[in-house]
Design a protein around this nucleic acid. Structure first.
Length: 570
DNA sequence: CCCGGGAGCGC
DNA sequence: AGGCGCTCCCGGG
């Protein structure tokens, strides 16, 4: 299908404290008129940059400010005040007429903030933010972060928010722009100058007082504006690195929902669209919305049904190989294996397996997603072209994410297709399967040391990796005999492992890769030194095959730390 | 001392 | 604006 060329603008702005609020002080628009949503290109392109600056109410511009950025950057448009700046912003937007607005934290903050400032100044043309001429501003919530008026005002344009997208697609501690730059901008990218990439990756946070200070001289003001320009490029780099736009296109294509919603709203709505299409296609009425049994059921917080099973860990240090097996896509597979669906299963507690032989709509849809993914994976195997490969990978990911999110939405109270009895049935079968697998493996005279929801860890009592893999394949073959399409697979083998508690362990796998799960050292509520030292000690223990020697080395290291701390070197 | 509840993880 | 399970830690009684 021919894909249209779109106009994208990357937006970044700076504000200055003013009484109890902030006023808009400067903005930059980086414009790309040849943007394609599905493009997997990593190097951002742009046609031109536009920056505008206002004289804040409480400050003066530097006496020698000449509106020049120096170098080959464009001239800065200087405005008399915030209202003037806002009008220039709207004028530019009108000329550019972007299809896509890209930025960081636009959805929960940025757009709402700009709209708020326009309201303060009664800016007439505010509806130019979007593509519909409107008289009344959408009503804003008292609190920014809860409202959607800013986004609403941008009707007709896609809003791509690097914060929102990153929160969905990558696991990070913080999603502020500085952290995103650090973690989501690559070290190197052919086609980009290393020093520019380095500058983008290493963002300096401008606190409000720094912005105020920057207005003190032309040089510092230029630096501030340059950073604002760089923020635009940073968001372009982050966006193309996490591939949020091509993925959103794929997900929208898979679910048949609305693209702007894929970029802004939760997963439940996407799944609802997919299911509504499916029910319609089969000429079947969608199920009535799920009703809670009692009022208290709806109000009480906490779990509404039982989840996965966690096996009691056999705690200790293991220096033989621990075999790691897990079921592929356990919950989507259970839905298919047992034909669990709105159309086949009674909405009751305790839930009961369906008796009908007719395939339900939900398992049918999941099967389609899984099969389509298999097809794409086949294509990936034979594909040589890098661009096409990237495109197929995004497609494969979209299919996987959609299949895997079905269970979660069954349990979600606010979903149109909420069906907690079905979710409860899925997890019940999951617990049953894990328990049965444990019992079965133990009957093979093997020791199960741990397992969580869909995984099982087996003590191989061996230090020979090929023996271990052979054993793994045997277990896999035997377990899989019990199921029609449910499948367990070898996930790896831990060369050594320290198993402390449920969901807390450290290990080194057959390739030397370290895994730390749930321990204090992975938690952000512990100090950096505690995390680092904990890590060092675990590494000493896990890499040293002889336990006594490991313990001796740890004592030695702790002595050293104590001494250094005493000397106040740490 | 026992609780209930939140963080912040794991899956 | 997917789910629950499990430490931990804290404060109230």
């Amino acid at each position: 299908m021919h894909e249209p060329q779109l106009t994208m603008v990357s937006l970044s702005f700076k504000t200055i404290p003013l009484k109890k609020t902030n006023e808009l002080a400067a903005f930059t628009l980086v414009v790309n008129k040849n943007f394609r949503l599905s493009s997997t290109k990593k190097v951002p392109e742009h046609d031109y940059i536009m920056t505008a600056l206002s004289k804040p109410a409480t400050m003066t511009l530097p006496y020698d400010w000449n509106g020049e950025m120096g170098g080959n950057n464009e001239k800065v448009e200087s405005c008399l005040g915030e209202k003037h700046l806002l009008n220039i912003f709207l004028k530019e937007l009108r000329q550019i007429d972007p299809d896509i607005i890209l930025g960081h934290d636009l959805l929960d903050f940025g757009l709402e903030y700009i709209l708020q400032r326009m309201k303060v100044h009664s800016v007439n043309g505010w509806s130019r933010l979007g593509r519909i001429k409107r008289k009344d501003m959408p009503r804003m919530a008292a609190q920014i972060g809860l409202a959607r008026a800013g986004h609403d005002a941008c009707n007709g344009r896609l809003v791509a928010d690097t914060k929102t997208s990153a929160m969905e697609l990558v696991k990070m501690r913080d999603y502020n722009l500085t952290s995103l730059c650090e973690e989501q901008i690559p070290e190197q990218l052919s086609g980009l100058k290393p020093h520019f990439l380095y500058a983008c990756k290493n963002r300096k946070e401008y606190l409000p007082e720094h912005i105020v200070e920057a207005f003190g001289s032309s040089n510092t003001l230029r630096m501030l504006l340059q950073e604002n320009i760089n923020d635009c490029f940073r968001n372009m780099l982050i966006s193309s690195n996490i591939q949020s736009l091509p993925l959103a296109v794929q997900i929208t294509n898979i679910c048949g929902n609305i693209l702007s919603r894929t970029l802004s709203r939760g997963r439940a709505e996407r799944n609802a669209y997919l299911l509504l299409h499916a029910f319609h296609k089969k000429d079947h009425l969608p199920p009535p919305p799920y009703k809670k049994k009692t009022v208290e059921d709806g109000d009480k917080k906490g779990p509404k049904f039982a989840g996965g099973m966690v096996l009691e860990p056999k705690k200790g240090l293991y220096t033989n190989y621990i075999l790691l097996l897990d079921f592929n896509s356990l919950y989507p597979s259970i839905i298919q294996e047992y034909n669990i669906c709105f159309t086949t299963t009674a909405m009751q507690a305790p839930p009961d397996l369906p008796k009908t032989m007719e395939e339900g709509i939900l398992p049918f849809e999941i099967k389609k997603l899984v099969n389509r993914r298999k097809e794409v994976k086949k294509l990936i195997k034979n594909e040589k072209n890098a661009d096409e490969l990237a495109r197929l990978n995004i497609r494969q990911l979209g299919l996987k994410l959609t299949a895997n999110s079905m269970y979660g939405c069954l349990g979600f109270t606010a979903s149109r297709f909420c069906a907690q009895p079905l979710a409860a049935l899925v997890t019940a079968k999951g617990r049953e399967i894990l328990e049965a697998t444990k019992v079965f493996v133990e009957k093979m005279n093997l020791e199960v040391v741990y397992g969580d929801t869909d995984s099982i860890m087996i003590n191989s009592n061996s230090t020979n990796i090929s023996e271990v893999m052979k054993l793994g394949n045997l277990v896999k073959k035997e377990v899989n005999k019990h199921y029609r399409l449910l499948e367990i697979d070898i996930d790896g083998a831990y060369k050594s492992m320290l198993l402390l508690k449920k969901k807390k362990y450290a290990a080194i796998d057959q390739n030397g890769k370290e895994e730390f799960k749930g321990l204090d050292i992975v938690r952000r509520d512990w100090s950096e030194i505690a995390r680092n030292e904990g890590r060092t000690i675990l590494k000493l223990l896990l890499h040293e095959q002889d336990e006594e020697e490991g313990v001796r080395k740890i004592h030695e290291h702790l002595e050293m730390i104590g001494t250094e701390a005493g000397k106040q070197r740490i």
